[in-house]
């Protein structure tokens, strides 16, 4: 069994919309996103709303058909699969959704929902299904009597546990968690995050953790990718990226993140200027219009993802040579 589970390369996706002038235009939600994910590893994806995070999540599980690029899962080309193999791929890569209220079928008890998932993929003989449901409820730390209840009987955090149990029912190798805690209270967020970490350790799950919350991503991820307008602008080990961000956008994000220390709380604006429209992208670097370090070539030629060192890369010309002193001072 190889360690590498998921290999996404150059994924692109555009949506046809009507632009501000009323003409039909293409909104580029993903512009060549690449990443890899190993077994037992968590890759965090951070970015503002509209950066393409959810499109990425839904493309990876094939709820959205990407326009281009490749998704290799466990050595096979996931985009070519059909029929039984496709169903197997779907089973092995499970998504947990953001909204715990709409992600569960309101007319199915917890038992019915879990039994269906187990039954469709014939993962247990019928006689063993009830035992497996009990096991799953234990796994997500819900009481056994939850099985007979309907989603409306549960709170948001409990529903999210049910969503996780449903995903785990089909014994996946990989979880795609799209903003799974953003609809929950802070204290419940911590419980769900800890549950996820525990499950990862027990089941050797690979997790693609998508969130706009930098602190949570830092806490849970081994590696992170920072998304901006459909591109990954910086990747690297979570600690490295957060401690020493190289892309000006990452730096701005981290500077703007709320801190718990009131003395350090600033009123400073994170990034100046408007987010460029994803329908009408600038010719050069997409961050150029808001960047404090903008140079002439940034406006004409978009930078490639340039390596900082063996594990890190940033889509910025400043990384070509080591970051200039001015940049160093800004980073915490």
């Amino acid at each position: 069994m190889t360690k590498r589970l998921l290999e996404v390369a150059d994924l692109t996706k555009g949506f046809v919309t009507r632009g501000a002038d009323g003409r039909i235009a293409q909104l580029k939600a993903l512009r060549g996103v690449s990443f890899t994910l190993d077994r037992g590893e968590t890759l965090g994806i951070v970015g503002e709303s509209g950066s393409g995070k959810s499109t990425l999540a839904r493309s990876v599980v094939r709820l959205i058909e990407p326009d281009g690029g490749s998704i290799r899962f466990d050595g096979t080309d996931a985009r070519r699969l059909s029929g039984r193999e496709r169903s197997q791929f779907n089973r092995r890569v499970q998504m947990v959704f953001q909204d715990p209220y709409s992600s569960l079928n309101p007319r199915m008890t917890v038992r019915a929902a879990l039994a269906e998932a187990i039954g469709v993929h014939r993962l247990r003989p019928p006689a063993a299904v009830d035992g497996r449901i009990a096991e799953l409820l234990d796994l997500v730390q819900l009481p056994q009597e939850a099985a007979e209840r309907y989603p409306r009987d549960f709170s948001g955090g409990q529903r999210q546990r049910i969503g996780i149990a449903r995903a785990l029912a089909v014994e996946p190798d990989c979880l795609i968690a799209d903003e799974i805690v953003s609809a929950l209270d802070l204290s419940i967020q911590a419980q769900i995050i800890n549950l996820l970490l525990e499950l990862q350790a027990r089941l050797d799950l690979a997790i693609l953790f998508i969130s706009h919350d930098l602190r949570i991503v830092r806490h849970i991820s081994h590696r992170v990718g920072v998304m901006y307008l459909g591109e990954i602008v910086e990747t690297g080990g979570a600690e490295q990226v957060f401690a020493d961000p190289r892309h000006p956008y990452t730096q701005a994000l981290i500077a703007a993140a709320p801190t718990l220390d009131p003395g350090r709380r600033g009123r400073q604006e994170a990034v100046h200027g408007e987010l460029p429209s994803p329908i009408d992208l600038p010719a050069g670097c997409s961050f150029a219009s808001r960047c404090v370090h903008v140079m002439e070539r940034c406006l004409t030629m978009p930078p490639a993802l340039l390596s900082v060192d063996r594990t890190r890369a940033a889509r910025c010309y400043l990384t070509e040579n080591a970051a200039p002193p001015a940049l160093r001072e800004k980073s915490p």
Partner: peptide, 22 residues
């Protein structure tokens, strides 16, 4: 368009099951 329908697709369920059971 609700997420439970997406979840059913993501679980690898067939269209007949998604339409008539969900």
């Amino acid at each position: 368009r609700l997420d439970y329908a997406h979840a059913a697709r993501g679980l690898g369920y067939g269209p007949a099951r998604i339409i008539f059971r969900h």
